[in-house]
Structure formats: C-alpha cells, structure tokens
Design a protein around this nucleic acid. Structure first.
Length: 272
DNA sequence: AGCGGAACCTGTCGGC
DNA sequence: TGCCGACAGGTTCCGC
C-alpha cells in the first residue's frame, strides 16, 4: 500500500489513539514479521506504554515509555487496524496483535513484505540511516539532488524510488510527481538543471501534501486504522490510467516498465 | 562503484 | 470451472 501520505495518515491516527495506552499482551501469529525471537518480542513489550508515534519516509517509529523503539514498515499490503470490538476472532492476515485496555492494535499483512523491528538506536539503524530527506522536509534543496544524482546514469523515475536523497516516494507518487513536473520518467537525473530540480521539489511537496490532505490513495489494499479509505485515488492524473486521455492534452497515457516497475506518463506533456 | 535483475510471499484478475 | 501467467502500492542483496 503505503507511501508517505498513507503512512503519515496512519501515523496521525495511531498517535491519537495510542499515546498513553499500555500494552497488556502481544501475540505473534507469524514469527517472520518481527525479525527476532517472538517470545522475546512479546515479553519485552508487555507492560510498556506508547509514548510517541513518529515517521520517517515510509517507516513508522513507535517510542515506548521504556526499552527499544519499534520500527514498522507496511511493505505492499500492510495495515494497522484498531479494533474496539470485543470480538477476538483472528482474520487470515493478522500477523501480530497488541491487546490494550479497551482495544486491540492489529498488524495485518497479506504479502508479508512488511515487518516490525525493535531497535535501541533509531537514528543509527541501517534502514533509517539509509534514508534521505523526508519527502515533506522543507530543507531539501536542488543542490542536494544534484550532489546525489550528478554521477548516476539512472533515470529520474528509478532515482525517485531509491528513498535517498528523498524518502517516502513510491510508484504511485513518482508517476504523479513526474507528470506534474512535466518530466519523462526516462530522463536521466544527472541531466536535470536547477530549474527542473526546483520544479521537481515543488511538485514533490505539492503532490505529497495534497495526497495527505485527502488521507492517501486507496487503490486496493490501503485502509486507514478505522478501515476507511483514502480519497486521493480520485485525483490521480496518470497512475494506472493507461490508454485514458491525458488531463492536459488528451493524448492517451502510456505505460512502460522501468526497473521492474510500471511507469505511467503522457508521451506528449512529459519530455526527456 | 554502480547498475539491473532476482528474491522475499501472497493474492487477484484476465485469458484460454 | 480450472489452470496459468501477469501484475501488484517495497526493499535488499547478489552478480556483473
């Protein structure tokens, strides 16, 4: 599911619901998603209070009153569900269940690409250390992109998916950002000048913010913690629109494959 | 050093 | 109806 706007939507909802809550018990139903001995994982978290829920790129970071923090990545299909009913029936893809005072927090992941991982030192965790500026970080400047991309022969589409120097963009928003910036996905990053880089940064912020205002994009799996959908799918210009008219020039949207991922673009509006 | 591709695992959909 | 291949919002690792 989840790129920056979806993860941030979930972060806000979880923060609201969890801070100050105590974990009564933890059940791990799919050991491979916790990246450590599930018995240790459960035992250590039981009794802890949620203190803060942060985010960097597509990672959620849970801070507790004591002990290590917990990183969560939702992979392709991961969800956090807040279940306030008293029905403890397990759904097929429920991997980890945290029982709190009056609710259960369920980590559900059909494809098992997502995971929960505890760490004593978030900032130095290799997965976090690798990330560049968060996609909404106002400090990102054209110079940073130039420095990172200057010697690379990769296309701009591939570079946007790297999570460094910009973190949080995935396949949907890469398509929408490049359409907004009028850049063909196969343009080489190193060929972009100051003007194009500035436009790219502006569009990144504009699209991610707009998507966040609409609570993210629900194409198939993505749901908010209360099972509501996001609404940004109603605003997509090119992602998944192969053959449909470009909203600007009405030529059909093209699809190609780059680095094993689909790219969607207008062959007329987006130039190399 | 940097690149493309395979791998991780599961589900859905369309064609035959 | 059943089987098979293509495709899916992500990340890491392994050769070349």
């Amino acid at each position: 599911m989840p790129e920056l706007p979806e993860v941030e939507t979930i972060r806000r909802e979880l923060s609201q619901a969890l801070v100050g809550e105590q974990i009564y018990s933890v059940e791990v139903h799919r050991p491979s998603v916790v990246h450590e001995d599930p018995t240790d994982f459960s035992r250590d978290l039981e009794g802890c209070f949620f203190q803060q829920v942060d985010r960097k790129g597509k990672y959620l970071i849970f801070q507790f009153s004591q002990g290590p923090a917990m990183l969560a990545h939702l992979g392709m299909s991961g969800k956090f569900i807040l279940d306030r009913t008293s029905d403890p029936t397990l759904q097929t893809h429920d991997r980890v269940v945290f029982t709190l005072k009056d609710q259960r927090l369920v980590f559900s992941e059909s494809r098992c690409f997502g995971f929960l991982e505890r760490t004593q030192d978030v900032a130095n965790h290799p997965r976090i250390k690798r990330l560049g500026f968060d996609g909404l970080d106002p400090n990102l400047k054209p110079h940073d992109l130039k420095q990172a991309w200057g010697k690379s022969n990769r296309s701009i589409k591939t570079l946007l998916l790297q999570q460094s120097p910009i973190a949080g963009i995935g396949n949907i928003y890469a398509a929408e950002i490049l359409f907004g910036a009028k850049l063909h996905p196969e343009t080489l990053g190193k060929n972009l000048g100051d003007q194009a880089l500035t436009k790219l940064i502006d569009e990144t912020r504009r699209i991610l913010s707009l998507a966040l205002e609409h609570n993210g994009t629900s194409i198939s799996d993505y749901r908010r913690v209360d099972d509501k959908t996001g609404e940004f799918q109603n605003f997509l210009q090119v992602y998944g629109k192969t053959g449909q008219p470009c909203p600007v020039c009405a030529k059909p949207i093209s699809r190609s494959v780059q680095a094993q991922r689909s790219s969607f673009f207008c062959p007329d509006c987006q130039k190399i």
